[in-house]
Design a protein around this nucleic acid. Sequence first.
DNA 1: TTAAAAGTTTAGACAAAGCTAAATAATCTT
DNA 2: AAGATTATTTAGCTTTGTCTAAACTTTTAA
Lengths: 217, 217
Amino acid sequence: MTLAEENYLKAIYHLENQSSNEVSTNALAEEMQTKASSVTDMIKKLAEKNMVSYIPYQGVTLSKAGRAHAVKVVRKHRLWEVFLLEKLNFSWDEVHDVAEQLEHIKSEKLTDKLDEFLDFPKVDPHGDPIPDKHGNFEEIDKTSLTDAQEGQSYVCIGVHDSSSDFLKYLDANHISLGTTIEIIHKEPFDNSVKIKFNDVELVVSENVAKNLFLQEA
Amino acid sequence: MTLAEENYLKAIYHLENQSSNEVSTNALAEEMQTKASSVTDMIKKLAEKNMVSYIPYQGVTLSKAGRAHAVKVVRKHRLWEVFLLEKLNFSWDEVHDVAEQLEHIKSEKLTDKLDEFLDFPKVDPHGDPIPDKHGNFEEIDKTSLTDAQEGQSYVCIGVHDSSSDFLKYLDANHISLGTTIEIIHKEPFDNSVKIKFNDVELVVSENVAKNLFLQEA
DNA sequence: TTAAAAGTTTAGACAAAGCTAAATAATCTT
DNA sequence: AAGATTATTTAGCTTTGTCTAAACTTTTAA
């Protein structure tokens, strides 16, 4: 698997998890920041290698082998994120880009030793689960802040958008994973939400609310 | 700098350090395990980018910028080797191949944080010096075992050949960096050397002797 | 000091991964 | 159910890094 192939597998994997349908050429092109024609070419190559099954005009789905490979890349990505944050003191908005490079290092021994060195972490700095050596992981039960109930308390357990901008926004407002928040008011007009944590009240936009994952406290 | 370009710079750097002349196309091809014609093509590209100076038929030398870049790659390689050995418990014959991949990760922050995490090591697991953030390092004063004097004692401080086979040979014979050895006898017939360390005597071939670096004890 | 050998470069191809423009299929609209 | 729109694929080209075979320099040695 080349670097480009691995990135496609990862992108297909992410899109499959988001909508459970076949992944369309255009959706993949959007995700990969490339052109639909390039996607078609690559999909054909991946189909040749039995990493995806592909019917022209009908989209693409990962094969067993393709999904297994994608999960390995995801495992590496998330382990490196933990390493960067916990051992090298990167901030959580900085880890993603470097992990994008490190996830392609080929050495099963390295991955497993790193896992051990980090004490077998279960989630990465954005709250996403880390597959174990065999590709198994627990899907985390999460509610978006938009779906939270007024009056109820929750713990922040993850983010949907792990862009640097969003994470910096959370940092600036002192929200991190583990923070307990209470839903004070949901404003129907603009879907903003007033929350309270550490005795401070804060109104967050719908956009922020959509991207923050919670678990009932 | 692409991955291939970086590997060429590194190879030129190593060859320059070995013989101080211009690096010939064939020598580079040998080092890179490729064909002379491929080397010519790449050299031209590196010359375009002012990373090397190149006169056809006369070989190639690194420019300031080229050398600086090569040193950065070497720094990363050696830091990762220390990480793999000290933090992840790789053995010294396993670190090289993985470091070959890790040395191309682009993030100055990562490199410098890693350096700090490892407590600014001065040498890698094979005794080679690690350049600091600014590219500076001390050349280590080393004698090959072939040049050692009978009756004299030395400390092992490095290896020339860091192939897995050679390092496994040393491991099997309990020779590691820091081991103090005494030269018992140099055999002129085949240039083998009888050494003694930890109260054990051992005869090593010329090939081994050439690849073991010492410092007077 | 010239011919052979050795070393190097050029010319022309190829595979990977991308692009644009054109063609084709699927879907939506009325 | 046909035309329009949207989605997808194909065709042909580009760049990077490699290769083989042929041509050309440089060195060596008679």
